[in-house]
Computed example of a mutant assay.
Amino acid sequence: MGRRLAPRWSGRRLVAGLLAGVLVSAGACAGSSDDDGPVPVRWSRGALPVPDGTPGRVVVRDVTVCGDRWYVVGAVEAADGETRPAAWVSADTRGWTPVGVAAESFYGQRAVLYSVGCRDGVVAAVGARSGGVHGNPRVVTWRQVPDGSLVEVPAPFELYGGAEARNVGRIAGGAGGWLIAGNRVSGAAVWGSVDAAGFELRAGLPGLASDDRGVTWAYDVAAGPAGWVLAGVVTGDADAAVVWTSPDGVGWTRVGLPGDGARERPQRVVMAAGGPVVVGVRGSSFGAWRAEGDRWGPGGWRAAGRFGTGAAGGSVQAVAPLAAGLLVVAWDGARHGLWVSPDAGESWRPMSGPDDLPVGGDRSAGVAAGAGRVVLVVDDGREGRLWVAPAV
């Protein structure tokens, strides 16, 4: 694992939408479109110390804010390519400390942590390392214990792997516990847990699994006051963008997202401005869909704004909710770009990234926002980098 236009904006609207996560300099507020240039943001480079043990380079995959702490997850990669799981924590995004990671299994000791979620101030993570006869990812989960460290959760191979395996994706925490999004031979699936101490596979469920309408694929999951939302597609004669909603993570309702016939692939889902917002590829651009309030079912979703170009060869890699908006990291096939919306996906404007934002290579990215600052992590297969945009 680890080898992954806008209408006029008033200054008042922009600052109000970004205040909780991205505070921009004066003069950044005037403007209406891509032609006005990116919203300027002051980035500073952060440092993640290599945890005790075999030396190597820092690998970064994901970041989240959880309670009053920030967490980054990834690995340490030695010169010979061997990896070991790693995580870091910070109270202020300035200084970072390695988190203890207790791994017991062969693949757990070599895993790269690629997704981290939060629930009630506690984190849980998913990681994997390719291996075995077929070189498939061997998935392992971790839960946080009272001393702050992460401990491996024992699981039989068939829970995440085996003959029915496809992939295991991202993890999210909510009022009902934890869910991991992924896919099995039967189609879209989830793994659920009350406390992240043991997960149950829920595959082949009506509405979620593949059927005569096509093959289902789930990419991401988020939790909100009305339950869970999965984002994905149904592939068939004509691919369809969909979400699945569930009050309990067991019973699911499939909802088609409105489209215009272009290639559409929802890839990330977050809760913003009181409801779920999905972001992904929409033809040759990126774009969003959103539901209003508690209307998450059929008829409650609509297509929102589009942004960027080059989406046909790219992907939305990370999304962070702001007070009333969104911050997106997207890959256009050549480079990473940052985009910000002050109104939960309706309008968009590019945002300036760090000067040394990597391009090309084997890449992954994560972003989180809260308490007046943003943390961005990007890995290009050669170096894991972290930046912070502080409040000003």
Rank of each mutant, 00 (worst) to 15 (best):
G135K: 03
A368Y: 08
G361L: 07
S44R: 13
V229N: 04
S315C: 04
D68I: 00
G192T: 15
P38W: 01
A391D: 07
R363T: 15
R363I: 12
G81K: 09
V145S: 08
L205M: 09
R45M: 06
G127T: 10
G308Q: 04
P51M: 07
G174C: 08
A125F: 05
P7W: 01
N167W: 15
A273T: 02
D211I: 11
R94K: 12
V63I: 10
V221A: 06
V153P: 11
V242Q: 12
T245A: 08
A344N: 07
V145I: 08
G305P: 05
S130D: 14
L179D: 04
A288K: 04
R302E: 11
V242A: 14
R3F: 08
G275Q: 04
L327Y: 03
L386R: 03
W70S: 06
V89K: 12
G21L: 00
G108L: 07
G127P: 11
N136D: 14
G236L: 08
A125M: 10
F106N: 09
L179F: 05
A304R: 03
W244Q: 07
V126I: 13
T245E: 05
G232N: 12
G81T: 06
G177Q: 10
V15G: 01
P206S: 13
G353W: 04
R373K: 04
G192V: 11
A175L: 11
V388T: 15
G249I: 00
D380R: 11
V58E: 02
L376T: 00
T83R: 15
T83A: 13
V185N: 14
L201T: 09
R12W: 04
V60Q: 07
G95L: 10
W43V: 01
I171H: 10
R84D: 04
G305C: 06
D220W: 10
W301F: 01
V126T: 13
V359G: 12
E346T: 11
A334G: 15
A223H: 04
R84H: 12
G287V: 08
